[in-house]
Amino acid sequence: MEIIVQRSGGLAGLRITWRVDVDEQPDADAWVVLVDELPWRDVPPAPPEPDRYVYRIECEPHEALLAEGQVTGPWRELVDRVRETAPPHREPPPAPRTR
C-alpha cells in the first residue's frame, strides 16, 4: 500500500510530495490501522484560503483534499508520519497561463 501526501499552495505556490510504501515499513500494521481509521467519507470541501497550504492525501482507493486548517487529529498524525518517513520531492509552481 502506498500513501501519497502532496502539499501545494502557500506564498510561493510550490508543490511538495511525500510517498511512503507502507509494506516496507517496520510498523506496517500501525500504518494500516491509522489509514483505516481516517474519516475518508466525511471530509468537507476544502474552503478557499488564499496563501495557505492545501493537502491532497491518497491511499488507494481513497483520496482527500484538505485545507491546512482541516489537517487535524488523525489527518495530522498521518501527514506528520509520512513527512517524517519519506524525503520530500519538490516541484516548481505551475507556469502562468498565457492568452
Rank of each mutant, 00 (worst) to 15 (best):
33 V>A: 13
17 T>G: 02
26 P>C: 01
36 D>V: 00
97 R>L: 14
57 I>C: 13
85 T>E: 01
43 V>M: 10
32 V>S: 02
19 R>C: 07
38 L>G: 06
74 P>K: 13
66 L>P: 02
39 P>I: 06
97 R>D: 05
57 I>K: 04
18 W>P: 00
70 Q>W: 15
74 P>E: 06
58 E>Y: 00
9 G>M: 10
16 I>D: 08
16 I>T: 15
64 A>W: 04
96 P>S: 07
9 G>S: 11
36 D>G: 14
52 R>N: 03
38 L>N: 06
12 A>Q: 11
92 P>S: 08
72 T>F: 01
56 R>S: 12
81 R>A: 15
48 P>Q: 05
58 E>D: 15
8 S>A: 12
89 H>Y: 05
53 Y>I: 04
92 P>E: 00
86 A>G: 00
78 L>E: 00
6 Q>Y: 01
84 E>N: 12
49 E>C: 05
93 P>K: 03
9 G>D: 09
67 A>V: 06
43 V>K: 04
47 P>E: 13
94 P>E: 13
69 G>T: 12
23 D>V: 07
29 D>L: 09
75 W>P: 08
53 Y>C: 06
87 P>Q: 11
93 P>Q: 05
5 V>H: 04
80 D>T: 13
57 I>N: 03
37 E>F: 04
30 A>S: 15
56 R>N: 08
82 V>H: 01
87 P>F: 02
10 G>Q: 08
5 V>E: 00
96 P>W: 02
81 R>I: 01
59 C>W: 09
66 L>C: 09
87 P>L: 12
84 E>V: 01
50 P>M: 07
94 P>F: 04
77 E>A: 11
1 M>K: 11
47 P>R: 09
9 G>P: 09
28 A>Q: 13
76 R>W: 04
92 P>Q: 01
44 P>T: 09
75 W>M: 01
4 I>K: 14
67 A>H: 14
83 R>D: 01
17 T>E: 15
18 W>Q: 00
3 I>L: 10
64 A>K: 07
28 A>V: 05
39 P>K: 06
36 D>F: 07
85 T>L: 05
85 T>M: 00
16 I>K: 03
6 Q>A: 12
44 P>S: 09
11 L>P: 01
84 E>R: 12
57 I>E: 02
7 R>F: 10
80 D>H: 05
24 E>L: 14
28 A>P: 00
49 E>G: 03
66 L>K: 04
1 M>W: 07
30 A>G: 07
81 R>W: 14
49 E>F: 01
69 G>R: 13
37 E>S: 14
86 A>C: 07
45 P>L: 04
59 C>R: 10
23 D>Q: 10
31 W>A: 03
69 G>V: 05
33 V>R: 12
69 G>S: 15
73 G>L: 06
69 G>P: 00
33 V>E: 14
84 E>C: 06
9 G>E: 11
62 H>K: 10
75 W>Q: 04
